[in-house]
């Protein structure tokens, strides 16, 4: 499915008569269900049969939320099988990657927010500024290579409009560029389901998403530049033990969360200095003032 030119910027929309399988994914609190509700209402207005199925139990802890929206002349199953989604709307980048295999191979449309929400369990190293275990794929790895569509900083667009929570509506606006439904009708549907006080910002966010155009190619790589942090030992952090003062009580060795200290006979030594995160537990708890931690990020 190719997007066709719409007005002067976007590709031609899909005919309104055809049914669609749309998968909306994100994490808790982003408004996945608001998008699917708007889609379902819109499809109902066109006289389609609509089925919607969702999982939102993990919403409060930033867990996965997804919603299947299917509409056609007749819909039997409420869920979209792998490889059968016509469109994938992702409110979070890692979720976009997680659900990529649900798109129709070669024909699916991919619309994703590039903003990352890094979960705590992806932060495996406690070192200052350490890279997380978050997905390393960039939008350039996906859009145009594995799926057609676009990846945009919807959260940034919404923040610029005054409320980052309208990012879902920005993506809904982008999605609307592929569907042949009148803009006025979208505005009506959105106004009907969002809280009264947020109608204006959601309308603006929808229009901004619908009018979004990809940045010039030379601007694009800016997002991935930050990820290229040089690996290697962090010279700002370090631990040392004064053997003359150490009495070998073993407190530092047993209490170091990174286990970078060890007993060497009657004295404690630094076994893996690179593992030190500069947390200062050993320094605080050494009764003999033998441990010194250097950490320019955290004061003593």
């Amino acid at each position: 499915m190719r997007p066709l030119p719409q007005e002067d910027f976007a590709p031609a929309p899909r005919p309104a008569s055809a049914g669609l399988n749309i998968l909306v994914v994100g994490v808790g609190g982003q408004g996945v269900l608001m998008i699917s509700k708007a889609l379902a209402l819109m499809a109902q207005r066109r006289g389609f049969a609509v089925k919607q199925s969702e999982v939102h139990g993990m919403a409060k802890r930033g867990g996965i939320v997804f919603s299947h929206v299917r509409f056609a002349e007749q819909v039997w199953s409420p869920t979209i099988a792998r490889g059968e989604a016509d469109m994938l709307i992702a409110l979070e980048w890692a979720e976009a990657l997680r659900w990529l295999d649900h798109l129709r191979p070669g024909r699916g449309v991919f619309i994703a927010d590039t903003r990352k929400i890094v979960p705590p369990f992806a932060c495996r190293s406690r070192k200052l500024g350490a890279p997380s275990a978050y997905a390393r794929e960039t939008p350039a790895d996906v859009v145009g290579r594995h799926a057609d569509g676009c990846a945009l900083d919807a959260t940034g667009i919404a923040t610029a409009l005054g409320d980052s929570r309208a990012a879902n509506t920005v993506l809904l606006g982008r999605l609307s560029a592929w569907l042949d439904y009148p803009v006025a009708e979208w505005h009506e549907v959105i106004a009907a389901i969002v809280p009264k006080g947020t109608r204006e910002i959601n309308r603006a966010a929808f229009d901004a998403g619908r009018a979004w155009t990809p940045p010039a190619p030379d601007e694009a790589p800016a997002a991935s530049a930050a990820a290229a942090v040089a690996p290697g030992p962090d010279l700002r952090i370090g631990v040392s033990i004064d053997a003359a003062w150490c009495k070998g009580c073993g407190i530092c060795v047993k209490l170091c969360p990174e286990r970078c200290l060890a007993m060497d006979g009657p004295k404690a030594i630094v076994r893996t200095p690179a593992a030190c995160t500069g947390c200062r537990v050993c320094e605080w708890l050494c009764p003999d003032f033998a441990v010194t931690v250097r950490n320019e990020g955290v004061p003593a």
């Binding site: 009764p287 003999d288 033998a290």
Partner: peptide, 16 residues
């Protein structure tokens, strides 16, 4: 220094 206290004595931590 080093002080006279036994290995692991909490008084050293309190002193710090």
């Amino acid at each position: 220094m080093p002080h006279f206290m036994c290995p692991g004595c909490g008084h050293g931590i309190a002193l710090r």
